[in-house]
Every structure is written in structure tokens, then in C-alpha cells.
Write a protein that binds this DNA or RNA. Structure first.
Lengths: 185, 185
DNA sequence: CTCGAAGACTTTAGCACTAAAGTTAGAAGG
DNA sequence: CCTTCTAACTTTAGTGCTAAAGTCTTCGAG
């Protein structure tokens, strides 16, 4: 039925089944902790698949969408070097060279040498790139709104707050030799 | 200082800065929704980096760890075909061929033809593979316990419940032509 | 002024993945 | 039986990534 966008493998057991199986195989598992962690991971995977499908409808890939987002977030005049882009996206500069090549070919960005310092390269968002970003942003926010539809305003706030607390713990703490998190503040 | 495990690029703006920047560029953004979504994504990325570092200390990669987990979750006698493994992990069978090759070479699994149906291949966890899984599982649960350390039991339960509700929405709903989520129940 | 060193990007080699074509065993029909 | 179909895995071609080596500009010291 023209379902060419068929997603491979979501043939995994339900979350409850998975947690039950873990408990059988690993006695000292805290099911509450496992529920949080597994739900986080799964939710994220599903969301990324959904984003991918949506931006594909606009003719761009998720990787291209990430570059557009990063340029827009940098604010006007929407210019960054490949190295800076790579850092913000958690990639190596080498990967950026090829992404920018392709995106420049598609007219989403321009790629020029900095006239003041000819070692540097400047990647700049084009009007077309900005328009694509806006379309993708509209789709994404609609999707996110749908996703949170069942939660009340209070619940959304609470969820956001709890997640931010976890994020702080993982960002402001540094894993020591054994990989444990230690308090810094 | 032997920090060869240096993680590339976490040079991104703080969550609050990022949300503020989005609001400047996109008027009708709900900051509450954006906080939940962005925190989710970031948290997940950081956690995956942490898992990767930890299992690397055991001499296995995250991809190998995922295979071990899937086999253990399938329950005794810890056997699955490459195709089934691929489905559960969301990969193509082709990718599984190579992973299983490598893991068999490392003694984590065995790979044999099914005698009853010689088209099928059976990947089975070895004792060594199971021991690796157990070590990795101990590290992972310690890490997860640390991560949730600042949350009370009630907060953990609440967070889990909220995440499960989101997950249900994304799993039980089917995106329609426009990618919107629609109710099924 | 010239040389050496540093910085910012690009290129190369190698790996893991996908899509699509290829292989082989088992099942079904004549 | 023999052919054809189907299922399950493997192989091939091509993409996108990393790590490491290479190139080119700029800066600083003698």
C-alpha cells in the first residue's frame, strides 16, 4: 500500500515485558530506575524516527536539518565556520566538509573563504535554507505538541523540571576513573 | 593525562540559552514543550556517551553490548537468528552478518546453522558473552542509580509514569499522511 | 626577511551502516 | 520428480562517519 517509508525493526518486546525479562536475568535491578531509563531511550528512538520521516517530506535529511538548526540558533547573520559547526554537533571537522559540500550544492548554505583571514571558511545560511528550517520547525513543533497532548500544563512543567535536573547531573558532574558520577558543586 | 576518551563537541549552548534563541527566531514556540523535548534529546545523547565509555572499559563496543542485551532478554537458551536480532535492534540483516562475524571471533557468541532447517542460522550467547553482559549491566545500573540520585522515590515513579505516557502516545498512535499523530484507542 | 610553528580546513584510509542484488534450502504444485 | 516460489542469510555498491595525515595561511622569533 505504498508504505515505502516502512521502518525497520520495532519488533522489540513491550517496555513492561522487557523490564520483567531483565528482572528474571538480573536480580538486583530496580524496576523504577529501569522504567525511567528504558522509557527515555525508547522514546528518543521513536521520536528521531518521526523527525526523520517528517523532514524527509521536505527533501532534507535529519543531518541537514541539524546543520540548519545550528546556524539559525547562532543568530543573525547565520554564519559559522565548519569547525565550529562540527563542535556544536559533536562531529569531527572532516565530516562537516562533506555535509557542507552537499548542502551548498543544494543551495541551503553558501561556503566562502573569510577575506580577513583566508584560512577560515564561512558557512552561511541562504534564504532558501532558512525557509526550509522554518518549514521543518513548524512540522516539528506540531509533532511535539501532539506528543505532549495528553499531559496537562502542570504535568508538562513537572516533566521538564525533572528532566532538567537529570540533565544537570549528567552535565555538571564528571565521571571519575570508574565512570561514576561525582558531585561538583 | 591519558584522556584519550575525550568526547568531541559538547560545545553547544546551555539548554536555557538554546530555548531563548529559538524563541527569538520562532515566535510561536511553546517554551514548556521545547524544554521537555530538548532536555529529552540532550539527556539521551549524554547518556549514550557515558554508556559507550563504560562498556569500552570492558573491551566491547556499544553495538556489541546491544547484541548481548538482546540475546539475554530473549531468555534461555539465549539463541536468536541474525534476522531476528536485526529486527529487534532496528538494523538491516546485512549489518548483523558483520557484527556476528566479529563477535563470534571474539568468543562472545557462536554462529551455527540450524540442523533442522539449514537455511536458518543460530546465534547463541557463550558463557563469556553472558559474563561480559553481566559486567556491563552492573556498570550500567550503577550509573543509572547515580543519575537518578537526586530524585526521591516519588519523583522517580512520577517521571517514569509521565515518560511511559509519552511513549504510549508515540507507539500506539500512527502518524497519518501529514505526519500528525492520531488517536487509535 | 626568513624560518618555524600553529591553526583551520581538507584528504585519505578504514569501518559500520543501508539498499539492492545474489545464494541456497525448504515448500508447494503439477 | 521437477519446477517455481519463498524465506533467510550473505554479498556488493555506495554513503557518512572517525582518526590521522596533509595542505595552506598566518603569526612570531630571530
Amino acid at each position: 500500500m505504498s508504505e515505502s517509508t516502512e521502518q525497520p525493526g520495532t519488533d522489540e518486546p513491550s517496555l513492561d515485558e522487557q523490564i520483567a525479562a531483565y528482572q528474571r536475568e538480573f536480580r538486583d535491578l530496580d524496576p523504577q530506575v529501569e522504567q525511567v531509563v528504558s522509557a527515555l531511550g525508547r522514546l528518543n528512538r521513536r521520536m528521531n524516527v518521526a523527525y526523520g520521516r517528517q523532514v524527509a517530506a521536505l527533501g532534507i535529511s535529519t543531518t541537514e536539518w541539524e546543520v540548519l538548526k545550528t546556524l539559525v540558533l547562532s543568530g543573525a547573520p547565520y554564519r559559522l565556520g565548519p569547525g565550529e559547526l562540527a563542535n556544536r554537533l559533536g562531529l569531527t571537522p572532516a565530516a562537516m566538509t562533506h555535509r557542507v559540500d552537499r548542502m551548498a550544492g543544494e543551495g541551503l548554505v553558501t561556503r566562502d573563504r573569510d577575506e580577513n583571514n583566508r584560512v577560515r571558511v564561512i558557512v552561511e545560511l541562504t534564504d532558501e535554507g532558512r525557509a526550509k528550517w522554518l518549514e521543518a520547525m513548524r512540522m516539528a513543533t506540531d509533532f511535539e505538541e501532539d506528543l505532549l497532548q495528553d499531559l496537562s500544563g502542570d504535568e508538562r512543567g513537572l516533566l521538564g523540571e525533572l528532566l532538567v535536573r537529570l540533565l544537570r547531573r549528567v552535565e555538571h558532574a564528571q565521571p571519575d576513573a570508574g565512570g561514576r558520577l561525582t558531585d561538583l558543586e
